[in-house]
């Protein structure tokens, strides 16, 4: 018989109210958002209530998990679970973006050329990219790739380096390097978001401008939301590092956020190539 080293117990948490709270939050958010979109006055209130409850839930739930970690309840096997969980969560995010990239490639390489080939509905339409579509005369001046987007690429790539530098810090027990690296990463993330908002303000086209506007704003928009989320998570990690939550051996929360940050980074590189540059 094989004898595997196996911990006698796996930490099974006591019953928790947070999942139910989270469901109420999403119910309120979902109903409220649908009502808001249909101009029902109660909509914004439900959205606000739902968002508030969701925030309370996140703080409460993550707070519980952090307390358990600090109390040493998460044996190695639990941490392995966290690792698998984070890996598959990031994979699901990859597939979410794959859906939008698929739309971009399909529209650019199939739908627009087919519209030009058909010549039935819109005679004289010729395929080009960017395009606002055959139903309008509007032309689109895209954002120049080698201006702000290139700078943003540099910023995000540097932030990937700073977070890795912070990781070396925690591995070697240099708390100051950890804190400084995290702080720099947060600042670079915030800078990226600020520049992205600036770029949106200056862009000569809107989300309503045909398939180019649609794919551009949804891809960059969802990426931007992910950067904001990542920055917020890095900020939490910074505080936890300040309170000395991480040791050279146990710092999975840090690693999870770092993985997430690298994922956001890679998505941006694809965006830079396929949305801005080519």
């Amino acid at each position: 018989m094989e004898t595997h080293p196996h911990p006698a117990t796996y930490y099974v948490p006591a019953s928790s109210i947070w999942p139910l709270v989270g469901s109420v939050a999403l119910l309120s958010l979902g109903a409220g958002f649908a009502l808001l979109l249909n101009e029902q006055p109660v909509g914004p209130y439900l959205v606000a209530i739902g968002a508030g409850i969701l925030l309370i839930m996140l703080i409460g739930w993550f707070g519980d998990v952090i307390d358990e970690t600090q109390a040493g309840k998460h044996a190695e096997q639990v941490e392995t679970s966290f690792r698998w969980g984070m890996v598959w969560f990031i994979f699901s995010e990859v597939m979410f973006f794959a859906g939008f990239f698929g739309a971009l490639f399909y529209a650019r390489n199939l739908a627009v050329p087919m519209l030009a080939d058909a010549q039935i509905l819109w005679p004289g339409f010729s395929a080009s990219w960017p395009t606002a579509g055959p139903g309008t005369d509007a032309t689109i001046t895209p954002v120049a790739a080698w201006g702000l987007p290139a700078l943003n690429t540099l910023i995000l790539l540097s932030s990937g380096a700073t977070v890795t530098w912070a990781h070396w810090g925690v591995l070697q027990g240099r708390k100051n390097q950890l804190l400084l690296g995290l702080a720099l990463t947060v600042i670079l993330g915030a800078l990226f978001i600020a520049l992205q908002i600036h770029e949106y303000g200056d862009a000569a086209f809107s989300i309503r401008d045909g398939i180019y506007g649609a794919t551009f704003y949804l891809l960059t928009g969802f990426h931007g939301v992910h950067v904001m989320l990542g920055t917020a998570m890095l900020f939490v990690i910074f505080w936890r590092a300040l309170f000395g939550h991480f040791t050279a051996r146990r710092h999975f929360a840090f690693e999870a956020v770092a993985w997430y940050w690298h994922f956001v980074d890679v998505v941006w590189l694809l965006l830079f190539v396929f949305v801005y540059w080519l």
């Binding site: 979109l37 399909y106 739908a111 627009v112 509905l121 809107s206 989300i207 401008d209 180019y212």
Partner: peptide, 22 residues
């Protein structure tokens, strides 16, 4: 679908270069 419904995108509208078949 939601952004096509409410935010003016043209993912599935041929007039904007999109495609319902997509």
């Amino acid at each position: 679908l939601l952004t096509d419904r409410h935010f003016g995108t043209h993912f599935f509208n041929a007039a904007g270069g999109g495609d319902p078949v997509m």
